[in-house]
Deep mutational scan, measured.
Amino acid sequence: NKASVVANQLIPINTALTLIMMKAEVVTPMGIPAEEIPKLVGMQVNRAVPLGTTLMPDKVKNYE
Rank of each mutant, 00 (worst) to 15 (best):
Met56Cys: 11
Thr18Pro: 01
Glu36Cys: 14
Leu17Ala: 00
Pro33Val: 03
Gln9Glu: 09
Met43Leu: 11
Asn46Glu: 07
Gly52Ala: 01
Gly31Trp: 05
Met56Arg: 05
Pro50Lys: 08
Asn62Leu: 07
Asp58Ser: 10
Pro38Phe: 10
Thr18Val: 08
Thr15His: 04
Ala7Asp: 01
Ala3Glu: 10
Asp58Lys: 03
Ile13Phe: 06
Leu40Asn: 03
Gly31Ser: 02
Glu25Ser: 11
Pro50Cys: 09
Thr54Asp: 05
Ala34Gly: 06
Ala48Val: 12
Asn14Leu: 09
Ala16Pro: 13
Leu19Thr: 09
Glu36Leu: 11
Ile11Gly: 01
Ile13Cys: 15
Val45Asn: 02
Pro57Met: 00
Asn8Met: 09
Lys23Gln: 08
Leu55Met: 06
Gly52Phe: 04
Val60Tyr: 00
Thr28Gly: 04
Ile32Pro: 03
Val6His: 02
Glu25Trp: 10
Ala16Leu: 13
Gln9Asp: 05
Leu51Arg: 15
Val49Asn: 04
Ala24Lys: 06
Lys61Trp: 10
Glu36Trp: 10
Asn1Gly: 14
Lys59Glu: 15
Met43Phe: 10
Val27Ala: 04
Leu17Trp: 00
Val49Gln: 05
Ala48Lys: 09
Ile37Ser: 03
Pro50Trp: 06
Val5Trp: 01
Lys39Pro: 01
Lys23Asp: 08
Gly42Leu: 03
Val26Trp: 12
Thr15Trp: 06
Thr15Asp: 05
Gly31Thr: 00
Asn14Ser: 05
Ile20Leu: 12
Pro12Ser: 06
Glu36Asp: 12
Ile20Glu: 14
Lys61Ile: 15
Ala3Met: 11
Ala48Pro: 13
Gln9Phe: 08
Pro29Thr: 04
Leu19Met: 11
Val26Thr: 10
Ser4Tyr: 00
Leu10Asn: 15
Ala34Met: 06
Glu35Cys: 15
Val60Glu: 05
Ile32Arg: 03
Thr18His: 06
Lys39His: 13
Ile11Asn: 03
Asn8Cys: 11
Arg47Asp: 15
Val6Thr: 05
Asn8Lys: 11
Leu10His: 15
Gly52Tyr: 04
Met30Leu: 12
Leu10Thr: 13
Leu55Phe: 06
Gly42Asn: 05
Tyr63Leu: 06
Thr28Leu: 12
Ser4Met: 03
Pro12Thr: 07
Arg47Ser: 15
Arg47Met: 15
Glu36Ile: 07
Leu17Ser: 00
Ile11Arg: 01
Tyr63Ser: 00
Ala24Gln: 06
Met43Arg: 08
Val60Thr: 00
Val27Glu: 04
Glu64Trp: 12
Val49Ser: 02
Met22Arg: 00
Gln9Gly: 03
Ala24Val: 08
Asn14Ile: 06
Pro38Ile: 09
Asn46Ala: 11
Gly31Pro: 02
Lys23Val: 10
Thr54Lys: 01
Thr54Phe: 01
Val45Glu: 06
Lys2Gly: 15
Ala3Asp: 05
Lys23Trp: 08
Met43Ser: 05
Gln44Asn: 05
Thr15Leu: 06
Asn1Leu: 15
Val26Arg: 10
Glu25Met: 14
Glu36Tyr: 11
Ala48Glu: 15
Ala48Leu: 11
Glu35Lys: 11
Val41Tyr: 00
Glu25Val: 12
Met30Cys: 15
Val60Ala: 01
Pro33Glu: 05
Glu64Cys: 15
Lys23Pro: 07
Tyr63Arg: 02
Lys39Val: 11
Met21Trp: 04
Gln9Pro: 02
Lys61Tyr: 10
Val27Lys: 06
Asn14Ala: 06
Tyr63Met: 02
Ser4Gly: 02
Ile20Asp: 14
Lys39Asn: 13
Ile20Cys: 13
Thr28His: 13
Gly31Met: 01
Glu35Arg: 11
Gly42Gln: 00
Pro50Ser: 08
Lys39Tyr: 14
Glu35Gly: 11
Ile11Leu: 03
Pro57Ala: 10
Thr18Tyr: 02
Lys59Leu: 15
Glu25Asp: 11
Leu10Glu: 13
Pro33Ala: 10
Thr15Ser: 09
Asn62Lys: 07
Val60Gln: 03
Leu10Ile: 07
Leu55Asn: 01
Pro57Trp: 14
Pro57Lys: 05
Asp58Thr: 05
Leu17Gln: 00
Asn46Lys: 11
Gly52His: 05
Val27Thr: 08
Val60Asn: 01
Asn8Gln: 11
Met43Thr: 03
Lys23Asn: 08
Ala3Asn: 05
Leu51Phe: 14
Val45Pro: 06
Thr28Trp: 13
Val26Lys: 09
Val49Asp: 06
Glu35Asp: 12
Glu25Cys: 15
Ile32Met: 04
Val26Ala: 07
Arg47Trp: 10
Met21Cys: 08
Lys39Cys: 15
Val27Met: 06
Pro50Gly: 08
Ile37Gly: 01
Thr53Trp: 09
Thr28Gln: 13
Met43Cys: 11
Thr18Glu: 11
Ile13His: 06
Val26Cys: 13
Pro33Asp: 09
Asp58Tyr: 12
Ile37Ala: 04
Glu64His: 14
Lys2Arg: 14
Leu51Val: 12
Ile13Thr: 10
Gly52Pro: 03
Val5Arg: 01
Val49Arg: 00
Gly31Lys: 02
Val6Tyr: 00
Ile20Gly: 13
Gln44Trp: 09
Pro50Met: 09
Arg47Leu: 10
Pro29Leu: 07
Met56Ala: 06
Ser4Asn: 01
Gly52Asp: 06
Met56Ile: 05
Val41Cys: 08
Lys23Ser: 09
Glu36Ala: 10
Pro12Cys: 09
Ala7Val: 06
Val27Arg: 15
Leu55Val: 06
Asn46Met: 11
Arg47Ile: 15
Met56Asp: 07
Tyr63Gly: 02
Leu40Phe: 02
Leu17Thr: 00
Gly42Ser: 01
Thr54Ala: 07
Met22Lys: 00
Ala3Gly: 10
Gly52Leu: 06
Thr15Cys: 09
Ile20Trp: 11
Pro38His: 11
Val27Asp: 01
Val41Ser: 00
Leu40Val: 02
Thr15Arg: 03
Lys23Cys: 10
Leu19Ser: 09
Pro33Leu: 10
Asn8Thr: 15
Thr15Val: 10
Ala48Tyr: 09
Thr53Val: 12
Val6Pro: 02
Asp58Met: 01
Val5Lys: 02
Leu40Thr: 03
Val49Trp: 04
Val41Arg: 02
Val5Cys: 07
Arg47Lys: 14
Asn14Met: 08
Leu51Gln: 15
Thr53Asp: 15
Gly52Gln: 02
Leu10Met: 14
Leu55Arg: 00
Ala48Asp: 15
Ser4Phe: 03
Leu10Gln: 10
Thr54Met: 05
Val26Leu: 12
Ile32His: 04
Leu55Ser: 03
Met21Ala: 06
Leu51Ala: 15
Asn62Ile: 01
Leu19Ala: 10
Leu51Cys: 15
Ile32Asn: 01
Leu19Val: 10
Asn46Thr: 14
Met56Glu: 05
Ala3Ile: 04
Asn46Arg: 10
Glu35Trp: 13
Gly42Met: 02
Leu17Arg: 00
Gly42Lys: 00
Ala16Lys: 13
Ile20Met: 14
Thr28Ala: 12
